[in-house]
């Protein structure tokens, strides 16, 4: 690990100013990804500003029925919170499907959003990778692609975002609150993570020195009827091959409203807007669920090593919707 200076932040504004003024500085959250990257040589910050003691550690219900999640709330605490379990079960389930008990006790909400891809070529500093070293090439294309993207990838990068939590939050219309050197801004979480395009080194739209302070979940009554379904190579402590976060509201057999996001398939949590459009106002039948999945997957461009994911995501999406609708296939 390269030498670095460590500082424990007690004031958000000063911490932001310190990072903004130093191109080699980074914020430190739970450390589960960043400390590993520093050991691997993937990240080489000269200065770490530990923000875990800043007072962004509450989960609070808002007057309009939403929930505000502090950036430092640990994944295990968020998953167990009564408001999350009651109003947004998909989020609790997504968190609990990720990592291990130890890691969930360490990982923060903001850190979970900012974790980086587990693409083996990104994490191995000996192989070319456009995300780690822009312009060096993509070793995944033509390589081992079992865990790579089938939607929204580019010729420069086919990595996927690894978070389960973020997939549920994107389905829930979450908003990210960010504090930076020039003040506060908010953006929909669906716009927070980027597609790779020709700049895969940038995972998000966050500027250097900007700090996530909270994630806002809006009031979303249909989210009380939601679930997270994850397919992986082993039953626990594994990243998704594909995953689906879904919420569904049906009246008299007709889909009133729906939210769907998919994980393990793109450089960002993939909001399935085409599938949602195909479902709203239509009958809640397995056939319609299949049409919705097909509409979303029409744009899929799998690699030779992950073509199975197209059918796997279709099946997972249909199964998730069937479970929510209570209809047999």
């Amino acid at each position: 690990m390269n030498p670095f200076a460590y500082e424990r932040a007690s004031d958000a504004v000063r911490a932001i100013a310190a990072v903004a003024a130093d191109p080699d500085a980074m914020f430190l959250g739970g450390g589960t990804n960043l400390v590993d990257h520093m050991r691997l040589g993937v990240a080489k910050p000269g200065r770490l500003i530990d923000v875990t003691r800043l007072p962004f550690d509450q989960v609070e219900g808002t007057p309009d029925g939403g929930v505000r999640i502090g950036a430092n709330v640990r994944n295990s605490d968020l998953a167990a919170h009564p408001l999350i379990r009651a109003r947004y079960p998909v989020l609790s389930q997504a968190l609990l499907s990720g990592a291990s008990g130890q890691l969930r006790n360490m990982a923060t909400t903001a850190g979970n959003l900012l974790q980086r891809t587990r693409c083996v070529y990104f994490q191995n500093v000996d192989t070319p990778c456009n995300k780690r070293r822009p312009g060096s090439g993509c070793s995944a294309i033509g390589g081992y692609t079992r865990y790579h993207a089938i939607l929204g990838a580019s010729e420069h990068c086919i990595a996927v975002h690894p978070s389960d939590m973020a997939v549920a939050m994107v389905a829930l219309d979450a908003t990210v609150e960010v504090l930076g050197p020039s003040g506060e801004r908010r953006m929909p979480l669906v716009d927070f993570h980027r597609l790779p395009g020709d700049a895969p080194e940038r995972d998000t739209v966050l500027q250097h020195g900007e700090l996530i302070t909270a994630v806002m979940l809006p009031a979303l009554p249909l989210a009380a009827h939601s679930l997270y379904r994850k397919v992986r190579d082993r039953r626990s402590f594994a990243f998704a091959l594909v995953s689906v976060a879904a919420a569904l509201q049906i009246r008299d057999g007709t889909i009133q409203d729906v939210r769907i996001a998919c994980g393990g398939v793109a450089h960002k949590p993939w909001r399935a807007t085409r599938a949602e459009e195909t479902l709203r106002g239509n009958p809640a039948t397995p056939e319609q669920f299949g049409r919705a999945a097909d509409a979303e997957l029409a744009a899929a461009q799998p690699q030779p090593g992950n073509a199975f994911k197209v059918k796997m995501l279709r099946n997972t999406l249909v199964a998730a919707l069937q479970e929510l609708a209570g209809v047999a296939g």
């Binding site: 460590y6 424990r8 430190l28 450390g31 589960t32 400390v35 590993d36 050991r39 770490l48 530990d50 875990t52 295990s76 291990s100 008990g101 130890q102 890691l103 006790n105 360490m106």
Partner: peptide, 26 residues
């Protein structure tokens, strides 16, 4: 030494964590 095996698990303020991924000064 990557948080994957759990051999380093200790209790911090009563909660289990991977000591290998946690900087001492934190």
């Amino acid at each position: 030494d990557h948080g994957q095996c759990g051999a380093c698990t200790v209790l911090v303020n009563g909660r289990r964590i991977n000591a290998c991924l946690s900087l001492a000064l934190t």
